[in-house]
């Protein structure tokens, strides 16, 4: 019986955030249960007591205002409290910690392509180390998808042309469903797989058992040379192009007079749509577009490399 209950009503709780979400869920359940039962009980009692022909007191008119105020004000207070509670958990969900491992996720009809910082790639499967916070940097190659791991109680749309992030800390070893939760066409219900949360030794074994030799940063560095970025942006470049060392996470002045923070999205767009934002003081027609030449995964590798570039000039750390 308890096993049945567990399968049916208590989904696995495998991330730290899941506890907070469930607490809120059950809080709501109790509260709404009380309201629903209260309303239904009142309706049933009134229906029985005041049914035609019963000998109860009848009365055509009653005072309304005090009741109206009561039943508007009480829900208002409760709702504001709920909003604050739920908002606080949401806020927590939206802000990944600094020590989170960054994993790249690219969705396409109908598969998930995963790349770990070590460079190891997976499809429709993500292997994770228990208790290690993880931040997924995600984008789509075609339509909107959504990474949903019910056991972690988190979900985030994955958009084309835009980066979104989703983070969690797995706290329980096991295999958990990975679903696509945004309708994306024919194979939508097949677009999923498994998240494997592993104990340290098992994870170490999984890591060792790999043929990948090139980390994300190394792959990015290789692309940076191979695709000619270095020719303009490298330390020995003769062209007038901005150095990329240390730009990540720092403000960049644009030709329009605006200033933006160079985040993943900014670098992504600088590579694929260079005309969108021009760095102040640099020619606006020099940087070629790589739209159609670099895949989303390669762009992510380049970003990984640019992030890793120290603030001192040149070189891979």
């Amino acid at each position: 019986m308890t096993a049945l209950l567990a399968v049916w009503f208590l989904p696995e709780r495998a991330s730290d955030i899941a506890r907070e979400v469930d607490a809120l869920f059950y809080g709501l359940l109790v509260l709404c249960g009380i309201i629903a039962i209260g309303v239904c009980a009142a309706v049933i009692v009134f229906c029985l007591r005041y049914r035609q022909g019963s000998n109860a007191t009848r009365q055509a008119e009653q005072k309304t205002i005090p009741l109206e105020i009561t039943w508007s004000a009480i829900p208002l207070v409760i709702f504001i409290a709920l909003f604050i509670w739920a908002g606080a958990v949401y806020f927590h969900m939206s802000k990944p910690p600094d020590n989170a491992t960054e994993i790249h996720v690219v969705g396409k009809q109908w598969m998930w392509k995963i790349q770990h910082p070590t460079g190891r790639r997976e499809i429709n499967e993500i292997h994770l180390l228990i208790n290690q916070p993880v931040k997924l940097l995600m984008t789509s190659q075609d339509v909107i998808h959504d990474v949903f791991v019910p056991a972690f109680r988190t979900k985030q749309d994955v958009l084309p042309g835009r980066y979104t992030i989703e983070w969690f800390t797995p706290i329980k070893t096991g295999d958990y469903h990975l679903f696509c939760a945004e309708y994306c066409g024919d194979g939508h219900s097949r677009m999923g797989g498994w998240v494997h949360v592993m104990a340290p030794d098992a994870y170490a074994k999984w890591l060792a058992d790999t043929s990948t030799t090139e980390s994300v940063v190394a792959a990015g560095a290789r692309l940076f040379q191979a695709r000619g970025c270095a020719g303009c942006h490298g330390p020995n470049a003769t062209v007038h192009a901005p150095p990329l060392n240390g730009i990540f996470g720092h403000p960049v002045a644009l030709s329009t007079g605006k200033t933006v923070i160079a985040d993943e999205q900014y670098i992504h767009d600088s590579i694929l749509q260079p005309k969108k934002d021009i760095v102040a003081g640099y020619p606006d027609n020099l940087m070629p577009t790589y739209q159609g030449q670099l895949g989303e995964e390669e762009v992510m590798e380049l970003i990984g490399y640019i992030k890793a570039l120290g603030s001192t000039s040149g070189g891979v750390p």
Binding site: V21, L24, C32, I35, A86, Y90, H92, M93, E182
Partner: peptide
């Protein structure tokens, strides 16, 4: 009408779950 009141109440109350941000994240699109 009795049916309406019961079902609408449940429908409305479960709407609160979906208005509550963190819970909606888990429940939306399910």
């Amino acid at each position: 009408v009795l049916g309406f009141i019961g079902l609408f109440t449940i429908g409305g109350l479960t709407g609160l779950f979906l208005a509550a941000l963190a819970v909606d994240v888990h429940l939306t699109d399910t």
